[in-house]
Every structure is written in C-alpha cells, then in structure tokens.
C-alpha cells in the first residue's frame, strides 16, 4: 500500500471537480522531488463518507457556492479532531465571490475562526524555502476574480499544527494541467505542493 494517496473532496453543493488534472500533477511533483511512496492516481472521496478518514490530507476546490450538509459538517469535525488536514482553494480567487464567502462561513462553523498563516510558518520551510510566504500564482492578477495578490494563506491550528489551510490564490488553476506539460515550464510552479504534503506527513 502506498504511503500517500492524493484525495480530492467531493461535496454535494458545488463543482468539486473543477480541477481534474491537479491530482496527477501533484502526484508527479511528489515523485519528482521526494522519495515519498505516492500512489500513481488520486482518489475522489465524498466529504460525508467514512472513507474520508482513509486520507489524512484532502484537497477541496470549486467555483460555486459551498454549503455543507450536516453529514459533511459532522464528518469534517471528526476529521479535524483525529488529525486530518483539509486544504481548500478558491478556484475563483475572489474574496467577494460566493465560493469564498460561503466556504469560509461553512469552514468557520466547523473549525472556528480562520486566522492568517504567518509567512514564517514552518509550512514555507518544510522542503523548499519560500521566504516570502505562499508563492504567487499567474492567475491572481489575470483580470478575473478579485485581481489581488493575496499575501497570506489562512488556516486553523490545533495543538500546534494546521488542521485547515485555506487559499485565495487559485492554486487550482495554477496546478491544473497535465504533468507531462511541466517540461514546457522554466520553473516548476507546483513545488509549494511538496511543502504542503511533506508538512502533512511530518507534523
């Protein structure tokens, strides 16, 4: 069995599958830079399913409003208590958009208030060093969304480790391409995902 399986959260209310190529891209990145035993394909796991607990790191994204069912909410609470880490990315990169507003409302109900993750957080030094905090994406200033560069991510910590990480930076767009196309990039823009996974596996 592989140590690490990339899991995408499927939730009832929105377009959870808006970045279908992201899992393969991140798996490829993990394999390229680390010796972590990673499964070659990702999985899709419903948020309300008991299977959620098989994947202590889960990725969630979308464009549409997010409204958790009570089953999804209860599952997420238990998931956080047991040590799971949920990574949420606003595929709209729009703080005035309904994904951001509704997702943060739902996440606050489950996890409590979100706080900015300081750019000195260990997450930014776990494998590669990101001295300026979360790397900027090429989509943040593409004219859509809020057209802002978000300097920090947000999150919730429990007993000194992140249990929720929330991004407005649209990594879903940034990383949503076939891994074979990495060869066309001068700089691999997925390296921050390595930090995220290594952080999850070591903290």
């Amino acid at each position: 069995m592989s140590d690490f399986v990339f899991a995408t959260a499927q939730y009832e209310s929105g377009d959870w599958d808006s970045a279908p190529l992201l899992p393969a891209n991140i798996i490829d990145t993990i394999a390229r830079y680390t010796s972590i035993d990673v499964a070659p394909t990702g999985v899709i796991v419903p948020l309300s399913s008991p299977a959620l607990f098989r994947y202590p790191l889960v990725y969630l994204t979308g464009h549409l409003p997010v409204r958790f069912t009570s089953g999804e909410r209860d599952n997420l609470r238990a998931y956080a208590e047991r040590g799971g880490l949920l990574f949420v990315d606003d595929h709209n990169h729009d703080v005035d958009g309904t994904f951001h507003k509704t997702a943060t409302e739902e996440l606050t109900r489950v996890y409590g208030a979100l706080h900015p993750v300081p750019n000195t957080h260990p997450l930014y030094r776990t494998f590669f060093h990101f001295d300026d905090g979360p790397p900027t994406t090429s989509h943040e200033l593409n004219g859509w969304g809020d057209n802002l560069v978000h300097k920090t991510l947000s999150g919730v910590e429990r007993q000194g480790r992140l249990t929720l990480l929330y991004s407005n930076k649209d990594y879903s767009s940034e990383w949503n391409y076939h891994p074979d196309n990495k060869r066309f990039l001068s700089v691999d823009n997925t390296k921050f995902a390595v930090n995220l996974v290594v952080y999850a596996l070591t903290r």
Binding site: D17, P20, L21, P23, A24, I27, D28, T29, A31, R32, Y33, T34, S35, V38, P40, T41, G42, I44, P122, R125, T126, F127, F128, H129, G160, H178, P179, D188, K191, V194, V198, T202, R203
Partner: peptide, 26 residues
Amino acid sequence: RPSAVVVDVAHARLAGKDKGIASQRE
C-alpha cells in the same frame, strides 16, 4: 467524474532538477 490520469511514478521518481533543503522540525 474526471478521468484518472495515471502518473508513471517510477519514471518521475527524483527526476526534478531542484533539491529540497533539510528542515528543522519545531
């Protein structure tokens, strides 16, 4: 359901140009 892209992990293993930096655990 998006189709699953199967990554050739063995082929990609440690093929990255950049190397990570050992980090201190807090």
